[in-house]
Design a protein around this nucleic acid. Structure first.
Lengths: 239, 239
DNA sequence: CAGTGGTCTAGACCACTGC
DNA sequence: CAGTGGTCTAGACCACTGT
């Protein structure tokens, strides 16, 4: 019943409810229709709605109170980077006009740390891409990425100047699975400072991530440095 | 069938599988028994096991590959702070010997920003607690918290020197629901630097969080500053 | 105590992997 | 193509909230 296009029913419903919240400009504490009503509205089983709501809850969009109802949670702070969605969760693709300039695209012999992250045997090359990303004309992060050529078989300037992840999913037909992310404090070196139009030695966020395909194979290792003044991360958790 | 103690079957199963992984020292890519086998092993329905596995997956413990099997994901990096579990997700309570010293415990008139975070009407007081937390005898973070007295009705030195959240859940019988967390870069002021035995003006992580009860009422607003050298955060996401 | 959300089950059917 | 994980359903039963 849901073969073909690949959009699952519970995901579609989650999307629609999310859109409903936005359209009606609901905010913190506002009540949604009851589960029973939603079942009728979306013509799905109770279980499917429960699943859709669980998805929204895990993304911090709503919270559910047993015996009471379903309520919307605080909306995202403008300008803050959502750590859980930063890398591509599809629920709330704000994609703020993300203009990026490619600094370099080349094939390089990876350092041991890159080899370890991507689980690549010695002697194999990887793609190295460095970019500066702009928001409102302001440089706000400097991104260096290494791609395993076994999976990301081809890249060019054109592809790399747009969304690499979209290309990987749609162009190369690969399924992205999950990511391990580390956030550290760092200081800008000369090159980084130049690209970000900041001062050398200035404190910055360093976000290190390893992205894996759905089958667990690591295909991307990235180091992203953010300008300190512009950036704050946020995330919403459940207990 | 599951009234009384409050431990849900799918949570218990998730716990057990998690323990199984630890006990057998399984690591990245190791295969777990199939869903079918797990159903027999844990004497639960297929759906319940699917739910338990989804929970483990959302916590980054495993990943599932359709048509292939269930695999364990990389174990947590030692010493890194798990952002998703930092505040009390119960799956992996490592609770590294977390000794804390109470700097102050008092009732104060909240500033406008604290009032806004806790949604408190003007004229009401709140509990203010500041603590320094130590690991291996090293001061590693300075924590300032404000508690809404409407919910956290009583605090004393004894309670505050231990786990306040455990007290809130078990002593006060409140149910903690969710948290909004923001991570920023900041610089230590004189007081903060003194408590952390660091230099004034030094860069640090600032983790700002608002904790809510299960019914959406904010009860805690906290500002935690981490020493730069010691600290890195990590999190594991799905797509 | 009526109404709401949450758990658990059993089973049909589907999509994918790997031999 | 056998075996694995994923979705969806329908329904029983439970726990909680608010009036």
């Amino acid at each position: 019943m849901f073969g073909g296009e690949g959009v699952l029913k519970y995901q579609a419903i989650a999307q629609e409810i999310n859109q409903y919240i936005k359209d009606k400009h609901l905010s913190q504490g506002d009540k949604l229709p009851s589960l029973k009503e939603l079942v009728v509205l979306f013509e799905a089983s109770r279980s499917t709605l429960v699943k859709a709501l669980a998805l929204l809850e895990s993304h911090g969009k709503i919270y559910q109170v047993r015996g009471s109802g379903i309520y919307v949670r605080s909306d995202h702070k403008a300008g803050y980077i959502n750590l859980l969605e930063a890398q591509g969760l599809k629920l709330d693709s704000q994609t703020f006009d993300d203009l990026s300039t490619v600094v370099s695209l080349e094939e390089v012999t990876p350092s041991p740390s890159v080899r370890a992250a991507l689980k690549i045997p010695a002697g194999q090359k990887v793609y190295y891409v460095s970019r500066v990303r702009y928001i409102d004309g302001q440089a706000y992060c400097y991104e260096e990425s290494y791609y395993n050529k076994a999976y990301v078989t081809y890249l060019n300037e054109q592809i790399v100047s747009e969304s690499i992840f979209t290309y990987i999913e749609e162009g190369l037909q690969l399924k992205i699975g999950f990511a391990d992310i580390v956030v550290k404090l760092d200081h800008l070196n000369q090159t980084q400072a130049r690209h970000l139009k900041a001062e050398e030695g200035q404190a910055c966020f360093l976000l290190e991530s390893i992205h894996h395909l759905h089958n667990g194979a690591p295909f991307d290792y990235s180091l992203i440095r953010y300008r300190q003044e512009d950036v704050a991360f946020y995330l919403q958790t459940q207990f």
